[in-house]
């Protein structure tokens, strides 16, 4: 994006920002069918640590997730305050390495890129979760630095970590990511939401990322419910002021997660 516009957006908007990083699993297993009509092709393939039956048709877990993320954006754009307060960055993990899909920016400014890139996500490859979390934390750090340099107020960032399996990237990277999120969360410099998708998500591993709140398992494929709740929380936060204690409406969680 144009540097000048980016700088202008940063400086001329006085609204305290809520930086949110979505760290999303797009490994091969996210391509599994979770609904819709399917036809077996009879082929079998090995991906992401397992054997899979190849089918035609149906709706994949990733497609459900994409729907949820787009809903999240749409809800925020409809809210007058959240629209100028929330800033989202999207990091995915699949293939062999994490990828920065969208960097932090004003939501309006991100809109056309978001429409192209989120829907074009594809499930493939491994689950380098540690690497992705580190990349996400780096992005958050950079953005925080930019806020400070410009004299822009911000809330402590949120990190949403979604996975349907267990990490199979570098162990060192995974441990580094875990210790970084723990330190940040314990010092109240990060709010982390680890979310397990489906029955095979490694909830023990997710728990290690979050010293204060246990990870949540998404009930069925209710991404919509989660992102509805998340956008409502962002809206509420954006109407408070930095320094206010943020009370997350955890009542809302019961509908969509197995606590």
């Amino acid at each position: 994006m144009n540097d000048l516009l980016r700088k202008q957006d940063l400086e001329s908007n006085p609204t305290p920002r809520v930086p949110i990083c979505l760290c999303l699993d797009v490994s091969g297993s996210m391509g599994r069918i979770v609904g819709g009509n399917v036809q077996n092709t009879g082929r079998r393939e090995y991906h992401d640590g397992k054997w899979w039956n190849i089918v035609e048709g149906g709706i994949t877990a990733l497609q459900e997730m994409i729907g949820g993320v787009n809903l999240f954006y749409d809800n925020l754009l409809e809210d007058d305050v959240a629209r100028y307060s929330a800033e989202i960055c999207v990091v995915t993990f699949g293939g062999n390495s994490p990828e920065l899909i969208l960097d932090f920016a004003n939501l309006d400014r991100q809109e056309s890129e978001r429409q192209q890139k989120i829907s074009a996500l594809e499930a493939h490859g491994e689950t380098p979760l540690g690497e992705a979390v580190n990349m996400a934390l780096d992005c958050l750090d950079t953005r925080k630095r930019e806020f400070k340099d410009a004299g822009v107020d911000y809330f402590q960032p949120w990190l949403v970590l979604m996975t349907d399996g267990e990490p199979n990237g570098s162990t060192a990277e995974l441990n580094r990511a875990i210790s970084r999120t723990n330190e940040l969360a314990n010092n109240r410099r990060l709010t982390i939401f680890p979310i397990g998708i489906g029955e095979e998500a490694d909830m023990n591993c997710l728990a290690k990322f979050s010293p204060k709140r246990p990870p949540l398992r998404l009930k069925g494929m209710n991404f919509k419910g989660f992102f509805e709740w998340l956008s409502a929380s962002v809206s509420r936060t954006s109407q408070s002021m930095p320094g206010d204690k943020i009370k997350l409406d955890l009542d809302g969680l019961k509908g969509w997660a197995d606590l």
Binding site: P14, T15, K148, D149, A150, G151, V152, D153, M241, P242, G243
Partner: peptide
């Protein structure tokens, strides 16, 4: 007078409070 900008926002500040 500085629409929306809090008086204690500043470069390199520690946080408003």
């Amino acid at each position: 007078m500085h629409p929306g900008k809090p008086p204690y926002a500043m470069q390199d500040g520690e946080g408003i409070v």
